[in-house]
Computed example of a mutant assay.
Amino acid sequence: MSTNQASFVRASMIEASPAPSLESGAVSWLRKNLFATPKDTALTIISLLILAWLVPPAIQWLFIDAAWSGGGRGVCATLSQGGSQPEGWSGACWAFVNAKFAQFLFGRYPLDERWRPALVGILFVLLLVPMLIPRIPYKGLNALLLLVALPILSAILLPGGWFGLTYVETPLWGGLMVTLVLSFVGIAVSLPLGILLALGRRSNMPVIKMLCTVFIEVIRGVPLITVLFMASVMLPLFLPQGVTFDKFLRALIGVSLFASAYMAEVVRGGLQAIPKGQYEGADSLGLSFWQKMGFIVLPQALKLVIPGIVNTFIGLFKDTSLVSIIGMFDLLGIVRLNFSDTNWATAVTPLTGLIFAGFVFWLFCFGMSRYSGFMERLLDRSQR
């Protein structure tokens, strides 16, 4: 190459030019998501006006005019400084939530024995968090401790009566403890039982298929209140004389069976979505039925129905509030029970308690929803 020709060849790449200001940053996001068309612009403006109308009064009532500490209804029955609430009432009565917080967690569980549910709760968190993080090893041991050892330990600690522990009857249980126990047991039982029911409904054996179909359709055809009522009132009528079950155990059985029927249909939808070639390929390898399902079909089917599974879990978590029909007090039930306390009888107490209960329910449900999205993205790499 001659010297003149070499002078036209660059020795380095041209540096990248910055993106246009309208195609990057916050301005670009606003233009694409909120003001892309005249219709989007109008809806955005209307939404902002609604928020400007609702949010400031809500913040004023929830935080600025709220009563945060104190004892008795007097702290919520006076107009806060600079407040604007009529009839002499303050904003939200968070002092009521603060005073009743321990009861909202443990119900009427004896004060000197509350270390037992607190210990169970700490162990639950310590075992659940590593189970949910994919990078942490020893998942088999973790699952064994969470799903086998912890329930056995909880059955010893919570009711007591063993190893010198004071017996605490289940009617004294309540609050968030009951909500978490019901939902955890319901989730742990409904998923494997739902898988078995879904496989049974697709079975080629007529008796198994009929029994699973009848069970699923009967349970799905009645509301949970009916199932709980039958488990609490009618179940003892079918037992031998002198044989009985604890009322809380009946609620656990009713909630678990109810969730299992819905879980079975979710899993069945995933099984039907798997191409027939997957089944035939497993058969051609000489795999048994359970090997085919455990190694080939179910991993693909469960990955497809993660949103439906988590949706069932969220519905189960919220439906635990229906155990009040049989005299058990979950978080919502114990909050409503405290409305009758004359020491806190104000016009703002019920709404404050319901907002607190709703926020706790939303926090758990939102956490399950976000983790579901994380698992979907993690397991969907082969499809991208």
Rank of each mutant, 00 (worst) to 15 (best):
L146V: 06
A282I: 01
Q383A: 12
L141F: 12
F366R: 07
M263F: 05
M293N: 06
F356H: 02
L119N: 04
L157P: 00
D319I: 02
L199V: 11
E217T: 07
V323Q: 02
S284M: 15
F184K: 07
G277T: 09
T179C: 02
M234G: 09
F359P: 00
L147E: 05
I50F: 13
I216A: 04
A301W: 02
A198D: 03
I45W: 07
K292H: 04
L249P: 00
V181I: 12
A357D: 03
S24F: 09
S183M: 00
G164K: 03
L197S: 04
G294Y: 00
G194F: 00
G358V: 01
V207D: 13
N98A: 15
V27T: 13
P223N: 05
G286N: 04
R377I: 07
G281E: 06
D40K: 12
S284C: 14
G91K: 03
T179S: 09
R114A: 07
L354C: 07
F317H: 01
Y138I: 09
M131G: 14
T352W: 02
W94F: 06
I274H: 08
L378Y: 15
F245T: 05
V222C: 06
K39G: 07
T3P: 01
G88Y: 10
A118T: 09
L302M: 09
I355R: 01
I314K: 00
W362C: 00
A118W: 10
L304T: 06
L191M: 12
V255W: 01
M13V: 12
Q272N: 15
P159M: 06
L119K: 04
G71P: 06
S21Y: 13
T342L: 13
A36N: 13
L146S: 10
M131A: 15
G315H: 08
I64C: 02
T78Q: 14
T320G: 08
L144A: 11
P137N: 05
P57T: 09
T41I: 05
A149E: 02
L48A: 14
